[in-house]
Amino acid sequence: MNTIVCVKQVLDPEIPPAKFKIDPEAKQVIPPAGVPPVISVYDERAVEAACRLKDKHKGKITVISMGSAKAADVIKHAISMGADDGFVLQDPAFENLDSFGTAYVLSKAIQKIGGYDLILCGRQAADWGAGQVGSILAEILGLPVVTLACAIEAVDKKLKVKRMVSDGYEVLEAPMPSLVTVSSEIGLPRLPGGMGLMMARKKQIPIWKAKDIGAEPSQLDKAKAHTEVTGLSVPTRKTECEIIAGGTPGEAAANLALKISKLI
């Protein structure tokens, strides 16, 4: 089965919170120096889901990422995990697109690639986390969609998807092709093996511009954006933490117990 995975390169979410700085005017985050961007965690798990399907059913995994030319790194990462092919979608017209614009660009690239049985996206990006590109993409492509998958299997030309809900899970059956968004419950992504690292090292990642995928400028018009970020701020938390002391750790714990018993 052939899978297309959409991935995004994001600011490393594991940077220490104290190092998180923004430019409120530009409504952008200022990435700290010396911190390489990473593949968005959920997208990495989407790649993992694709690789697990490939392990069982063979087929081809194609990865696309819209972003800067550096996004080739995350494509290479996906290839090192087991993907076969990848493309970076980079064009000045693609910068700062909203979810609809992003989904539109991805849909054009996916149509160009064609021949897919499954499209995978992360449930949301680890940076702006709009949480809707996958669903909009499915609407554009006219595909059935299952969100928040924690396991995907292919059985008799159909997809069996386990979806997380708050008090358990549901098992859904979807036709092929469908679009599935993947949640972190799918499990830890694999560490790229030797073969994967080799493949990634050798692979050239082509860059597709707007004209390569036939993206209409009218669809990328920022004046027509569906949503706009009008403000960005780092919330100030004025919590004063009272450190409970004690001669020994046991005493401190007892003092805390007294405090707690009054709170509840």
């Binding site: 220490p16 919590t239 933490c241 409970i244 004690g246 750790p249 046991g250 401190a252 805390l256 117990a257």
Partner: peptide, 24 residues
């Protein structure tokens, strides 16, 4: 970082603190 959002805290090894807290 957790202390920056906490109201109360103990700095120490949880292995010593948590059992004592539970007992108390």
């Amino acid at each position: 970082n957790i202390f920056s959002v906490a109201h109360f805290g103990i700095v120490g090894d949880y292995k010593e603190i948590v059992p004592a807290l539970t007992a108390k």
